[in-house]
Design a protein around this nucleic acid. Structure first.
Lengths: 80, 80
DNA sequence: CTGTATCCCATCTGATACTG
DNA sequence: CAGTATCAGATGGGATACAG
């Protein structure tokens, strides 16, 4: 939600393998939540950006973040 | 989110089997999102109600419902 | 009524190697 | 860099039968 992201940046940031990441990106693309932009440079560059439909999820995400920060203690994820 | 629910009511309402429903209820209970109340009547009655932590998810759910009704056409779920 | 136990198949996921 | 191919293990889910 903080702007377009490159494949490699997502891969570095997220705790999933390349195969899973690619699968998720394809799903999100299929649901029209993100758009894939390929730049035929060398080396190749691919960026993923939210569509309007994806951007519209921001309110949901923010509501989740409020709930999360209030009820989930990151230093003690084991407790409920 | 519309009040306590009996096991049988959830089972009738939701498109999942009893095994899965029980599993989900146990997970939610483990995360302290719902509370299980058993009434030792005959026949037995069990109700599940949201905790405060669960109730606090209401804003998230409402944000989701707004997003959903705006971007997802239930009569054409196949399109993205 | 509210579950549990068992069997079985589909899907998800990770690790690894490879490609344009 | 941005993936794809392949294999194997883990997990999810349904159907059915049974139990307190």
């Amino acid at each position: 939600m903080s702007g377009p992201k490159r494949y490699s940046e997502l891969k570095r940031t997220l705790p999933i393998t390349g195969k899973i990441l690619t699968g998720r990106l394809r799903m999100l693309e299929g649901e029209n939540l993100i758009l894939r932009h390929m730049y035929p440079e060398i080396p190749m560059r691919v960026e993923y950006a939210l569509t309007e439909k994806g951007e519209a999820m921001r309110q949901m995400v923010e509501a989740f973040e409020r709930w999360f920060s209030q009820y989930i203690d990151c230093h003690r994820m084991d407790d409920a």
